[in-house]
Simulated scan of single mutants.
Amino acid sequence: MNPRDSALAALVASLWGFNFVVIDWGMDGVDPLLFAALRFSAVLVPAIFFIRRPDLPWRTILGVGAFMSLGQFGFLYAAMDAGLPPGLAALVLQAQVIFTVLIAAGVIREAPTRGQLAGVVIGTLGLVVVGLGRGGEVTLLAMALCLLGALSWGVGNVVSRASGATGSGLALTVWSALVVPVPLVALALVLGGPGVLGESAASFGWPAALSTLYTAVLASLVGYGIFNTLLSRNPSAAVVPWVLLAPVVAMLAAWLLLGQRPTPGEAGGGAVMILGVLVALRPARRPAPHPETVSRRVVAPTR
C-alpha cells in the first residue's frame, strides 16, 4: 500500500482499538444489550435514508446482520459488562480469524492452507495461555461470552463470503443493522424485566451519549467506510493485518486511561495469539513454474 493508505489503515485500527475503551466508559449503569441496541439504531438512522440497499438477497443482508452485528456485539457488550477489560476483549475477539478459517473449511469447503492451519493451532494455544493467565477479576463466563462473539463474527464472515458480496461494505453495514435493535431490546426485557428500561434510562448520561456517537459514527460508519475503500484498491493480505493493531491500541488505552494493566499471561498469550493470526493471514506461496515450462517460454520458436 502507498503511505496514504497505510496511514488510513492505521487510523482505522486506532479507531477500532479505542472503541473498546469508549464502550467500557459509557456503559456504566446501562444494560449492555440495550446499549448495543442503541448503537445500531444510530448506525441505522439516518444513514439508511441516504445509502442505497446493497444488491444482495435479503437472506444475506439479514444473515450478516444477525451474526456479524447482533451476535458479535451482543455477546461482546455482555462480556464487558461481566467484567472483561477492554484490552482483553479486543484481543479475544480476534479469535474470529480462527473461527472463520475453520467454519469456511467445514461449510463452504474452502480448504485451509498449511499456513492457515498452523495459524489456527498457534492462535488456539495463545487463547489457552490468555485464559489460564487472565486476572482474577476476569471470570470464565466473561471469556466465554467474548468467544461466542468471536464465533458469531466468524459465522458472519462466512455468510458474507459465501454470498459473493461485492460493492459497498458500508451499505451492507447500514442495512444489515435492521436486524439488530429489536431482538436486543426484546432479549434485554426477557433477561432484565420491564424495569430494565427505566433503570438504563436513569443511568444514561452524557458519557453514554458520547460513547454511542463514537461507536456508531466513528467506529462503524467511518471505520468500515475507510476499511472497505482500502480493500477495494489494495490486496486483502495488505489491509487485513492492520486490524491486529486494534488490540494493541485497546490495551494501551485501557492501561493509560483506566489503569487496567494486562497480566503477564494475558500479554504473553496475546502475543502468541496475534502471531497465529498473522500466520493464518499470510498469503500462500504460488508454486514455482516447472523448469521445462520456463525453458519453453525462453526458447519459444519464432515465425
Rank of each mutant, 00 (worst) to 15 (best):
R297T: 12
A219F: 07
E137S: 14
G133L: 10
L38A: 15
Y77L: 09
E199A: 15
T100H: 09
W153F: 15
L148A: 15
F50D: 03
W175K: 02
E199W: 03
W175S: 02
A9T: 00
P112V: 07
L256E: 13
W175P: 00
A219N: 14
M27D: 07
A250S: 14
R261T: 14
W58Y: 10
G26I: 03
V97P: 00
L147T: 08
V45T: 12
A284M: 08
V277H: 06
V249C: 09
A36F: 04
E110K: 14
G123F: 06
W58H: 06
G276Y: 11
V129H: 02
F50R: 02
L231E: 04
G164K: 04
G205I: 12
P235M: 00
Y214G: 07
A150P: 01
A165I: 06
S168G: 05
L145D: 03
F75T: 01
R53C: 01
A105T: 04
M1P: 14
S236V: 15
G276E: 01
L197C: 07
D5W: 05
M143H: 04
R114G: 15
V158R: 01
L187H: 08
P86H: 07
S168H: 02
V43I: 14
A42F: 15
R52T: 03
T263A: 10
A9S: 14
A36L: 05
G156Q: 05
L70P: 00
A250L: 09
R296V: 11
V158S: 05
T166N: 09
P3E: 05
T293H: 12
S176I: 00
V299Y: 15
Q94V: 11
P32S: 10
L278G: 11
L62E: 01
G192Y: 10
S163R: 12
L38E: 01
I274W: 03
I274A: 13
M143T: 08
H290C: 03
S203N: 14
P262D: 12
P283D: 05
G195W: 12
T166V: 14
G268H: 04
N234M: 12
C146T: 10
E137G: 13
S168E: 02
P3T: 12
P181K: 05
P241V: 06
E292P: 00
L125Y: 08
R52A: 12
S176K: 00
G205E: 12
P3C: 10
T302G: 14
G193S: 06
R59C: 04
L11W: 11
I103M: 05
S152W: 10
A111L: 13
C146E: 15
L34Q: 07
R114C: 00
R285K: 14
